[in-house]
Amino acid sequence: MRLIAFLIIFLIAAMAVSIAFGETALTAAQYHQAFTVPGSAPGEILWSLRAPRAVAAALVGAALGLAGGVMQGLLRNPLAEPGVLGISAMSALGAAIAIAAGLAVSPGAIEIAALGGALGAGVLVVFLAARLREPPSLILFGVALSSLGGALTALVFNLSPSPIATAEVLSWLMGSVANRSWSDGLVALIPIAPGVALSAWSARGLTMLSLGEDTAALSGLPMARLRIAAVAGAALLTGAAVAMAGVIGFVGLAAPHLTRGAVSDDPARTLTPSAIVGAILLVGADLAARIIPTPEELKLGVVTALFGAPLFALIAWRASRSWRG
C-alpha cells in the first residue's frame, strides 16, 4: 500500500509538471491568471490544452502498464507486452483502413476503427486462449496475428492512391496524445473501465499460473474464466490505448519490470503499481516530446522507444541475473 501511495503522489507530481510546462513559457502573472480566471488565454493553455493531454497520457500509460502486467503474468514471460498477442497490430490496421478510406474527417472514426480492430483481434485471441493453454502456442499465434496485421497495414499503404493518406497513417501510428480533449478521455474510459475490472478479477489466477497450467487447473480457482478475463481485459486496455494514442511501445513492457521487484515478483500484486508506473512513464514521455526543441513536435511513440529501449536494456541486464539462476 505504501508503494502505491508513493507512486500516486509521484504521478500527481508528474502531471502537475506536465501541465505547468510546455512549448509556451508562462510568466508568474500568467500562471496566477490561469488559476483565477480559467477562461483567460493562459487558463485555456493549462486547462483545455495541457491538462486533458496529461490526463490522456496518464490514461494510455496506465492502460498499457496494466495490460503489460496482465500479459506477462498470463504468459509467464518477462518479454510479453500488450501487443504480444497481436491486438496492437490489428488495432493499428483498423485505424489505417479508416484513414486510407478518408474517414479521418469524421470525428471519432479513427478511434472507433482502431478499437474495432482491437476487439476483433481480442475475440479471436480469447477464442484461442480458451483452447490453447500453454503460453508458447498462444504467443506463436500472437506473432502470426501481429505479422498479419502488419502485412495488411502495409497492403493499405500499398493500395492507397494518395501518399498523403500514407503519411497520415504513419504519423498516426507513431503515437501522440496531442490535442486531446476532456471528452476524449471520458470516451476512452468506456473500454478502459471494463478492461480494468476484468484484469483485476483475473489477478489471482495470474499468480496461480506461476506454478504452471496443470497446478493452476487443479487449484480450485475458475481458471478457464480467469484466463479469458485476463485476455479480454488486456485486449480492451490495449485497444483503448491504441485508439487514443496510436501504437506506443516499451511502456507496457517496462512498467511491470520496474515494479516487480517491489512486490516480490507476485504477478497479481504487480498490476496496480505497473499501471501507475505506466502512467508516470507516458506523462513524462509526453512532456519530453513537447519541451525537447525540435522543428516538428516529437511523436510519443518515438520518445518512448528512444528513451525506453536503452532503459529497458539496462533493466533486462540487471534482471537477467535472476532469470539465469
Binding site: R76, T207, L209, S210, L211, G212, D214, T215, A217, L218, S219, G220, L221, P222, M223, A224, R260, S264, D265, D266, P267, S322
Partner: peptide, 21 residues
C-alpha cells in the same frame, strides 16, 4: 474446477515456477 480441487491436490513432476516468488 472447485469440486475437483476440494477432492484432490496435485504436485506435477514439472517444477518450473514462473516468477521468483
Amino acid at each position: 474446477e472447485a469440486d475437483r480441487a476440494r477432492l484432490a491436490g496435485y504436485l506435477p513432476q514439472e517444477r518450473r515456477v514462473g516468477w521468483n516468488l
